[in-house]
Computed example of a mutant assay.
Amino acid sequence: MKTWIKRTFFGLAGAALLVGGLAACGHRMHHGWSSNATPEQAAEWRGKMVERIAGKLDLNAEQKTKLTTLGEKLHAQRQALRGQTDPRAEVKALFASDKFDRAKAQALVQQKTDIVRTGSPEVIAALGDFYDSLTPEQQQKVREFMERRRGWRRGG
């Protein structure tokens, strides 16, 4: 795999891990969490996420603004990846006939890869702007949190 693709994927994964991990500090939201949330619910959830993270890291107004921008970029990237159609329906359509539709599957992968490739520089820039605006103590809190949450999907 090309170096720039690896960096893009690691950067995007790091951004998602940072924001998702920090947002998971508090309790799980009941509204605005699902993919069927209205834009108002999603914006409300992002606002609560920013406030929660701001409280944990003692962010100033400028840092909150950068975190808000990061959240908006991540949301836009997620919406672009999801697209206008149901992702599950797209995958189910690959198996609709007696033969697996390889061309359609390859086109779907290419489409999603192109979305990540074009959107990730903005997400990475927003993540970098936010992280670079943190004080060394705040950055250390982020690193410690990420270390504690290592392996959270494996139940560890």
Rank of each mutant, 00 (worst) to 15 (best):
147 E>F: 09
124 I>A: 08
41 Q>H: 03
113 T>D: 07
113 T>N: 09
47 G>F: 10
60 N>D: 15
155 G>A: 04
144 E>R: 15
12 L>V: 15
114 D>Q: 14
91 V>M: 02
78 R>C: 05
102 R>E: 11
89 A>C: 04
95 F>Y: 13
45 W>S: 07
119 G>Q: 14
71 G>W: 00
116 V>A: 14
69 T>H: 08
45 W>G: 01
80 A>Y: 06
73 K>W: 01
144 E>K: 12
126 A>K: 00
9 F>Y: 13
107 A>M: 07
42 A>T: 05
137 E>A: 15
43 A>R: 12
156 G>M: 08
42 A>L: 04
121 P>G: 09
155 G>S: 00
149 R>H: 10
51 E>T: 06
30 H>M: 11
40 E>A: 15
88 R>K: 12
149 R>T: 08
77 Q>I: 04
62 E>Q: 12
43 A>I: 00
101 D>F: 02
14 G>Q: 07
81 L>T: 04
131 Y>I: 05
152 W>T: 05
32 G>P: 07
27 H>W: 09
36 N>A: 11
110 Q>L: 11
107 A>V: 00
27 H>E: 15
122 E>K: 12
143 R>C: 09
129 D>S: 10
86 D>G: 06
148 R>V: 10
109 V>A: 11
107 A>G: 05
147 E>W: 10
59 L>K: 04
25 C>Y: 09
113 T>I: 14
45 W>N: 08
6 K>G: 12
106 Q>K: 11
24 A>L: 10
71 G>I: 07
16 A>K: 11
81 L>W: 06
152 W>E: 08
93 A>C: 02
9 F>C: 05
147 E>S: 10
130 F>C: 04
125 A>S: 08
153 R>K: 10
153 R>I: 11
